[in-house]
């Protein structure tokens, strides 16, 4: 039997069983960060390249630490420069990297589908660390893991995802994974930010925040990108915060007292999320960060193993 590279390009194409497997695997990896020596020798001799073509300190640091805790050699390549000098950038970078024979390439890229493109042009296993508006698979997994840890299950839970759904890879991965695991997902945002056919990913849509969070077990707030103001997606931050933001008052009025609040970070405090909610007792944002590390270790381990060629 021949070994084939195992990529993680998106959650949409991942069988539900593998999503569950990765979550279980991640659970097993959580203890490593609690040991005296926070490192296992598993990926010794392997090279993990963190290719970040879009600035993202958090995700890069999380992947880097994950690789290091598995004893892989890590290489960080960043180029936040707008890759408008079309063509050569990604393909050339890919070929140059390929010559160094990395085992895994973790790619963050501003264009949807870039990891798929890379997987066709390189021998390494490709891990998608966020591509355009498409997917952010490890974020989707860590969101599921965090919810599962707190509520002991995902099936049957009601999860509200609120914000700019259209331009959010976090939303797409989250909807996909949560709905596959049996959660009832409702997305909410102004119609300018809810893309057509999002229901096909496995969610319902409402434009009313209070309706979305009523009876929700989990309220997941998405980051508003302020640069989108110029696109007339919403009239002002003020109005957005009032209609679609989450404040203490809204949470107390419209949500269940035990509803959990999540956010992929970094938070625009006072826009989509008020500081007293972000830091409040219902927030599990920091657990998300901690779980990010375990999930990324699990994913690197999983991809390092390869799979039987069909």
């Amino acid at each position: 039997m021949e070994r084939r590279r195992r990529h993680l390009l998106d959650l949409a194409s991942l069988p539900t069983g593998e999503i569950e497997h990765l979550l279980d695997l991640a659970e097993s990896f959580t203890d490593i960060s609690r040991r005296r020596i926070k490192k296992v020798p598993t990926l010794r001799g392997m090279t993990v390249v963190n290719l970040f073509m879009e600035a993202s300190t958090r995700t890069r640091v999380s992947f880097e630490l994950a690789a290091k805790r598995l004893s892989a050699d890590t290489l960080n390549l960043s180029s936040s420069g707008s890759s408008t000098s079309k063509g050569e950038t990604l393909l050339d970078t890919a070929r140059n990297l390929g010559a160094m024979r990395p085992d895994i390439i973790v790619l963050r890229h501003r264009h949807s589908g870039a990891p798929h493109f890379l997987s066709r042009n390189l021998d390494a296993a490709i891990v998608n660390a966020g591509d355009g508006w498409h997917e952010h698979p490890t974020q989707g997994l860590l969101d599921c893991l965090t919810i599962r840890q707190h509520l002991k299950k995902i099936e049957g839970l009601r999860v509200a995802i609120i914000g700019d759904i259209a331009h959010s890879r976090v939303a797409r991965s989250g909807i996909t994974a949560l709905s596959r695991l049996g959660a009832e997902v409702v997305v909410c945002g102004p119609p300018t930010m809810v893309p057509p056919g999002i229901e096909t990913l496995g969610c319902t849509v409402t434009f009313d925040r209070d309706e979305a969070i009523a009876d929700a077990d989990v309220v997941m707030m998405l980051r508003i990108q302020k640069e989108r103001l110029g696109e007339e997606l919403f009239p002002s931050e003020r109005e957005y915060a009032r209609r679609y933001g989450l404040s203490r008052a809204v949470l107390e009025r419209a949500a269940r007292p035990d509803a959990l609040v999540m956010h992929p970070g970094p938070v625009n405090r006072g826009v989509e999320l008020d500081p007293d909610v972000a830091d409040g007792p219902q927030s599990i944002i920091l657990d998300q960060v901690a779980n990010g590390l375990a999930v990324r270790m699990a994913v690197l381990y999983h991809c390092a193993g390869g799979e039987a060629a069909a």
Partner: peptide
């Protein structure tokens, strides 16, 4: 599992259970 010297000798990465 994570300490085995043959962890990736099989076709897929083996199951890891918590310690």
């Amino acid at each position: 599992t994570l300490y085995r010297d043959d962890v990736f000798d099989g076709l897929a990465a083996p199951e890891v259970r918590p310690t």
